[in-house]
Design a protein around this nucleic acid. Sequence first.
DNA 1: TTTCTAACA
DNA 2: TGTTAGGA
Length: 132
Amino acid sequence: MDKEIRRTMPVFPMSIVQKLTGLSARQIRYYEQHQLIHPERTEGNRRMFSLNDVERLLEIKSLLDEGVNLAGIKHVLNMKPLENEHPSSRSEHPKKDLSNADVMKYLKTELIEAGKYGKSSLIQGELSRFFH
DNA sequence: TTTCTAACA
DNA sequence: TGTTAGGA
């Protein structure tokens, strides 16, 4: 009953999250602006991240390396809602899990669809070759 | 001293 | 994305 609260409990300040994720403060704040993470705030308006926020950021970092842009990352993250979010908005668990293969499959589909039409794809750069 | 927001020679 | 100004 408190395993979940542990993952969602705000415990890390910016400096720690930077070291843990290897991302810059600028990037972390930017991703928050784009709703990829929702760290809580202290009385002094300082961000406090939970373990889930950190894991989420690590996944964002991973997808970034694979050449997925923010729009794509949003989609992937939205496919696995349970992972984090606030304890407040949590009552029942719609339970779900997404394997890496599922994500790959999704990304590949995005790439193919983008090829059919114009150019716009959620996947950028040459890294998309991993899906060819 | 650390983090925050806003903005760009 | 980096970096910096100016404040808390």
